[in-house]
């Protein structure tokens, strides 16, 4: 009886908290800054420079949303969230949007009452081994010791993969990515496994990155994307379509360099015109002005620019586009039409 009372009170409080956030866009505009739930620090995705300015792949999406809504890509407050606190903080209204390399899963989307508004990075779990082992496929890893972060989905994926392929392994549990790196380098395990982007970032920090190879197998699907609360569809549209804008801009050849020129007068391509507001009133349908896309692209660039600047092959993280290429190039990026 008492328990039900308490849960009832909690549910009521939760509902009330949900109700107040119905107008996230108004809240953001009144506050003048976007509260973006971000990582405490993840190479290539979110990291502060010496002046305390945040940069990274996820950070750029936050800045893009701020540029769309507030007109200022710097008007973002980055709220560092751990993997334990991120969804609760979003549900409690402490952040407006969560862009913290969070995997889109069924239970998070439904049970946690959150909305994933698209995928900004297709990741997957992989394996890294020393080159001297002479292994070229994860299926040859029979009997290997594997450094694995405990309590993550990667742990479960690992067990599945080895069981399906009928080979054995010996887990070496580690608590954090930092510990995993150290254990792997010290030779406590033959294999280190985590998301491929994480493996690439980790390998880039080694003294001799060439001595280590990332095996070709990808054993899980990890679509990472921006998350908002259930129940505020206007705000969800803005987050989702800002991401779609970045992707579509790359497909249509709109870059931060040429956006001003393209937006100056209507071009031959009607979709470019609709996006950049020289034709139609697409911005107004989301409650924004017609220049929103111009601001976003001139602030952060299109998806390809964001990718190359933060995690692309020229950066220390050095990721290839792979699954994250446009659908026209054999990747999975496919923005719905702006119409």
């Amino acid at each position: 009886m008492k328990k039900t009372l308490i849960f009832g009170a909690m549910a009521a409080a939760g509902l009330a908290a949900g109700a107040v956030s119905a107008g996230t866009m108004d809240d953001v505009k009144a506050r003048g800054t976007l509260k973006c739930g971000s990582n405490e620090g993840l190479a290539g995705f979110a990291a502060p420079d010496a002046n305390g300015v945040w940069n990274g792949f996820d950070v750029s999406l936050c800045r893009a949303i701020a540029a769309a809504v507030l007109g200022d890509p710097q008007a973002v407050e980055f709220v560092p969230l751990t993997s334990q606190t991120r969804f609760t903080a979003l549900a409690a209204g402490e952040v407006d949007v969560l862009i913290r390399n969070s995997t889109w899963t069924y239970s998070r989307d439904t049970d946690l009452k959150l909305d994933f508004k698209g995928v900004n990075y297709y990741d997957g779990q992989g394996f890294m081994v020393q080159k001297s082992l002479g292994v070229s496929s994860a299926k040859e890893l029979d009997g290997a010791t594997v450094c694995i972060q405990t309590g993550t989905t990667t742990e479960l994926n690992l067990a599945d993969f080895f069981r399906v392929n009928n080979i054995s392994y010996e887990p070496v549990p580690v608590a954090t990515n930092a510990e995993g790196q150290q254990q792997y380098l010290a030779g406590a395990c033959d294999v280190y496994t985590t998301d491929i982007s994480g493996l690439a970032a980790t390998r880039a920090t080694f003294e001799n990155p060439g001595d280590h190879v990332i095996l070709p197998e990808v054993v899980s699907k990890e679509p990472l994307g921006p998350v908002v609360r259930h129940g505020d569809n206007e705000w969800g549209d803005i987050v989702g379509w800002t991401l779609n804008l970045l992707i579509a801009a790359e497909e249509l050849g709109i870059t931060s360099a040429n956006v001003a020129e393209l937006a100056a007068a209507p071009t031959a391509n009607p979709e470019v015109n609709r996006i950049l507001g020289t034709e139609g009133e697409l911005g107004a349908m989301m409650g924004l002005d017609k220049d929103w896309a111009v601001r976003v692209i001139s602030a952060v660039g299109n998806y390809g620019e964001v990718f190359e600047r933060n995690i692309g092959e020229a950066t220390p993280v050095g990721l290839a586009r792979g699954l994250n290429a446009q659908w026209t190039n054999g990747g999975l990026l496919y923005a719905p039409p702006f119409r």
Partner: peptide, 26 residues
Amino acid sequence: VVFIGLRDPLGLTNAIRATGEWNGIY
């Protein structure tokens, strides 16, 4: 307080390590 997302000195070491320049320094 690092566990509830405040940026205490230990939390900042993580953030600093996340930059391309200083990744791998402990």
